[in-house]
Design a protein around this nucleic acid. Structure first.
Length: 605
DNA sequence: CCCCCCCC
C-alpha cells in the first residue's frame, strides 16, 4: 500500500486532501493527573514525518486494544489541522488501519522531519475561512460503531430529525473542534450538538448560593460539559434544546474534575458574560450520542462507583416503589429493571424519580444508558444517575442486533446473575475487608460513601477533644459556646441553656494484620469501645483526670467487628479519606472463627 | 461558583 506522498505538507499548508494514507511511526501516551490519556503520534507520508499529531480521545481504543501499533498504515477518514499558538497540530478524528504494524515492520522510505523551520507559520497559511474548514473526507462520513449519526439532508434509516430551523446570522469563521479546546487558547468557535441538558439546580453553601445548569456538547472530535450559572441560566437555559446544534464561543475553559465528570474530556466549559451561543441550521452531519458499551458480563471488571455505557433488553420491569434517602430523609421514587444481553448475564438497573415513574416496560424494550453508575450491591448492579442519559429503543445498530437476538433466542434463555462477595446466599452486603484492601481498592474514593466491615484491634485513642459539651435538646448535638456566666449558647437552636450533655468524637487508630486505619467514633461506638457512658466519662474527667486516663488505657488492644463508612472529604483543596465507625461490636470468636474457616475453604487448598 | 442523584 502506497503512502500519500507529500500529503502532510499539503495539510499543514491548509489544504484538506481526502483520505490520506499515512504511516504511524510511533505513538506516545500523554498522561496528566485527573485527565483522560491522550496519544501523540509521529506520522509519516513517506516523504516527511510530523510529530505534532494527536489522536482524538474517542479513538484511543485503537491504541489500547493494539489494533494500531508502530508502523501501521492507516487511512485517515476524518481529520483536522488546528493552530495552537505557533504550532500546527493535526488531529485524527477517524481512521482505518489498512496494514497492521507487524506486517509492515519498518519505517517506509526515508522521510525527512517537518518542524517549525520547514513548515509554513500559521499566519502564512492560506485561510480557508468558511465552514468547509472542518474536513469531512468523503461525501458521507462513516458513522462510528455505536454512533447515531444525523444526516440532516438525507433520508435514511439512521436519520433522527433534528430540525435547526432558525437562520444563523453569523459571519463565516473557522470552526474549531471540541477536542482541540484548551484553557490556553480562547479564540475559538465550535459547532456542537447538545446531547444532554440538566434541570436548573440551586445551591446554597458557605461560599454562597445560586443556580446552575449544564449541557453536554458533542461534535465529530469529542464531547465536553458546559455549565451556566445564574445570569447565564436566564439567558441560555430555555434557548438550548437537546439534539439541536449551536455555535459556541468565548466560554471559560477549565480542567474538568474527573470525580464528577463522566465525559471524555480533560476540560469543561463555563458560560460567562462574553459567551456567544447561536443556533445552527446548516446541513451538517454531527453525531447524536456516542456510546462505548460494556457487555453485561464484563461489569464484573468495572470498578464500583464508575460510570459505564450499557445496552440491554428489559426482561423484568418491577413496579414503582419508594425508599427513604439516608441523607435527605426524603421519600424517593424508584423502579428496578432487570436487563439482559447476549453475554448471558442479567443485571439490575435502577431508575429514579421521573425516569422511574414514566418508564414503560411493555414489550421488552431496549434501554441504552450512557454513564450508568456501577455499584457492587449484590455483586454488580446499575443505576441511572442524574449524569446518565437513558434512551429507550434507540435507533442504533446495537439496539437492532439485540432485538433480533432476543426475538430469536434470548427470550428463552436463562441468565446468570452476579454474586455478592463472601459467598453467602442472598444479597448479603456485609462487604468484609482487611485494611490493606480498603487502601488497594480505593474504598471511599468515589463520590458516594463505601461501607465495609472489618475486624480490628484498638491501637491508640486521642484524648484531646474527644468529647464536647453539646446542646441538651434531644435532636441537636451542636457544640455549645460557654458564655462564662454559667450559660451555654447553641448557635443552631439560637438559645442559651444552663446545662449541657456530653457528646463524643473519638479519633482512634485500629489495626489488623495487614494495615491500620484512623477512624472517627461518635457517641454510641465510642461509648462501646470505652465501656462507659459519655455523661459519666465527662464528669469523671472534670473530677478525676487520672481515672479518666485509666479508662482510655483500659480500652486499648481490644478487638471489635467494626462497621465503617469511608468517604473522601475535601477541605481547602486537600482531600483525605474520612472513615467513620458506624458501630463497634465485640468479637464473637466462635462466629468469627467460622467465617475464617469458610474463607480458608474458599481458597480451595 | 456545582459535584446531590439516594434504598436494599
Amino acid at each position: 500500500m502506497k503512502l500519500s506522498s507529500g500529503v502532510l505538507l499539503e495539510i499543514l499548508n491548509g489544504a484538506t486532501p481526502e483520505k490520506p494514507v499515512l504511516q504511524v511511526i510511533n505513538a506516545k501516551k500523554i498522561t496528566a493527573p485527573n485527565t483522560v490519556d491522550r496519544y501523540r503520534l509521529l506520522l509519516s507520508d513517506g516523504d516527511h514525518t510530523y510529530s505534532h499529531a494527536m489522536l482524538a480521545a474517542q479513538m484511543n481504543k485503537f491504541l489500547e486494544n493494539e489494533e494500531l501499533t508502530s508502523y501501521s498504515i492507516i487511512e485517515v477518514t476524518k481529520y483536522m489541522c488546528n493552530t495552537l499558538g505557533e504550532k500546527r497540530v493535526i488531529i485524527l478524528l477517524d481512521l482505518k488501519v489498512i496494514t497492521s504494524g507487524t506486517d509492515v515492520g519498518e519505517r517506509i522510505g526515508n522521510p525527512a522531519q517537518l518542524g517549525p523551520n520547514n513548515i509554513p507559520k500559521p499566519s502564512e497559511v492560506q485561510k480557508v475561512d468558511n465552514d468547509n474548514s472542518v474536513p469531512t473526507a468523503g461525501a458521507n462520513s462513516i458513522a462510528q460503531k455505536g454512533t447515531l449519526q444525523v444526516k440532516n439532508n438525507q433520508n435514511n434509516n439512521n436519520t433522527v430529525m433534528a430540525n435547526n430551523s432558525s437562520t444563523p446570522n453569523t459571519p463565516n469563521r473557522a470552526i474549531h473542534v471540541i477536542a482541540s479546546l484548551t484553557p490556553y487558547q480562547n479564540r475559538w468557535r465550535i459547532r456542537a450538538r447538545v446531547t444532554h441538558k440538566s434541570n436548573v439546580r440551586t445551591w446554597s453553601n458557605s461560599r454562597g448560593e445560586g443556580k446552575l445548569f449544564n449541557v453536554n456538547l458533542l461534535d465529530d472530535s469529542g464531547e465536553i460539559r458546559c455549565t451556566g450559572f445564574n445570569d447565564q441560566v436566564d439567558k441560555y437555559f430555555d434557548m438550548l434544546e437537546v439534539n439541536k446544534i449551536y455555535y459556541f464561543s468565548k466560554c471559560t475553559l477549565k480542567t474538568a474534575n474527573k470525580q464528577y465528570s463522566t465525559l471524555k474530556n480533560d476540560y469543561e466549559m463555563t458560560m460567562n458574560a462574553e459567551t456567544i451561543i447561536e443556533p445552527c441550521n446548516d446541513d451538517v452531519s454531527l453525531p447524536v450520542l456516542t456510546f462505548d458499551f460494556v457487555k453485561i458480563s464484563d461489569l464484573e471488571k468495572c470498578k464500583p462507583n464508575s460510570n459505564i455505557d450499557v445496552v440491554g433488553i428489559v426482561k423484568v420491569c418491577n413496579d414503582v416503589g419508594t425508599v427513604i434517602g439516608r441523607q435527605s430523609q426524603k421519600e424517593i421514587t424508584k423502579r428496578d429493571l432487570q436487563i439482559v444481553d447476549q453475554s448471558g448475564v442479567a443485571v439490575n438497573l435502577t431508575l429514579w424519580g421521573e425516569d422511574a415513574v414514566k418508564f414503560d416496560g411493555q414489550g421488552y424494550p431496549v434501554v441504552a444508558v450512557k454513564g450508568a453508575r456501577v455499584s457492587d450491591f449484590s455483586g454488580r448492579s446499575l443505576s441511572v444517575s442524574g449524569a446518565s442519559q437513558m434512551m429507550v429503543n434507540p435507533d442504533i445498530k446495537e439496539s437492532h442486533v439485540l432485538r433480533g437476538w432476543f426475538e430469536s433466542e434470548g427470550r428463552d434463555l436463562s441468565f446468570s446473575t452476579f454474586q455478592s462477595e463472601g459467598g453467602s446466599a442472598g444479597g448479603n452486603s456485609t462487604n468484609w475487608k482487611i485494611f490493606q484492601q480498603v487502601k488497594n481498592e480505593n474504598l471511599g474514593q468515589g463520590d458516594k460513601a463505601d461501607y465495609y466491615t472489618a475486624k480490628g484491634t484498638v491501637m491508640f485513642m486521642k484524648k484531646d477533644n474527644c468529647m464536647y459539651q453539646a446542646c441538651p435538646t434531644a435532636e441537636c448535638n451542636k457544640k455549645l459556646i460557654d458564655q462564662g456566666n454559667g450559660l451555654y449558647r447553641c448557635e443552631k437552636c439560637n438559645r442559651e441553656f444552663p446545662n449541657y450533655k456530653w457528646r463524643m468524637i473519638l479519633q482512634a487508630n485500629v489495626a489488623d494484620h495487614s494495615d491500620n486505619q484512623w477512624i472517627t467514633c461518635f457517641q454510641e461506638s465510642a461509648e462501646q469501645m470505652l465501656g462507659i457512658k459519655a455523661d459519666e466519662l465527662g464528669s469523671m474527667r472534670e473530677q478525676d483526670e487520672m481515672q479518666f486516663d485509666q479508662v482510655m488505657r483500659d480500652a486499648l488492644f481490644k478487638h471489635y467487628i467494626f462497621r465503617m463508612r469511608a468517604k473522601v472529604e475535601t477541605y481547602n483543596d486537600e482531600s483525605r479519606l474520612k472513615t467513620v465507625c458506624v458501630s463497634a461490636t465485640p468479637v464473637n470468636w466462635q462466629e468469627y472463627g467460622r467465617k475464617l474457616v469458610e474463607q480458608i475453604e474458599q481458597l480451595g487448598v
